[in-house]
Design a protein around this nucleic acid. Structure first.
Length: 134
DNA sequence: TCCTTGACTCAGA
DNA sequence: CTCTGAGCCAAGG
């Protein structure tokens, strides 16, 4: 799914995967968090980007390579975003195997497992937004 | 060609 | 804290 595809979708998805690969085992990141690390394409309206980038990340996950730890990416509520019949149980299983715990409602405590993001150095090397924002 | 269907998030109730 | 609805594009049937 992509809604409002970014001008450079292939490029965008590649960046998303690079970021996801940095998420350490036992930690999780949200779609919005990943999106916030990647700057909008030149000329793109910041408002539109903020509104749709999270979905683009979701779209990137839908087609990610096997070496991408897609299970560590969940929604802003700390819940699995996959539909029950699309691998949600598998995702939860993978996370639990890494030590991530789910509460009674099937949510992950983001205060405990949320990833802090890649190092400033890594961000610069990959052309992502720097710490401190613009 | 028309209609459905998405790995999301945020504000309101 | 939980549940709803809005925002909005494109590929596939």
């Amino acid at each position: 799914m992509k809604f409002l595809s970014p001008p450079d979708q292939a490029e965008y998805r590649r960046k998303v995967w690079d970021v996801v690969r940095q998420i350490p085992e036992g930690q999780v990141a949200t779609y919005g968090q990943i999106a916030a690390l990647i700057p909008p394409s030149k000329g793109m309206d910041p408002g539109d980007y903020a509104a749709w980038s999270a979905r683009w990340v979701g779209g990137a996950m839908a087609a990610c390579p096997d070496d991408v730890p897609w299970q560590r990416v969940i929604n802003s509520q700390g819940k699995i975003s996959l539909r029950p019949n699309a691998g949600a149980e598998r995702q939860r299983q993978l996370l639990e195997d890494e030590g991530v715990e789910f509460d009674a409602r099937g949510r992950v405590d983001l205060d405990v497992y949320s990833w802090a993001g890649p190092s400033q150095e890594w961000r610069q090397a990959h052309g992502l937004v720097s710490i401190g924002g613009s």
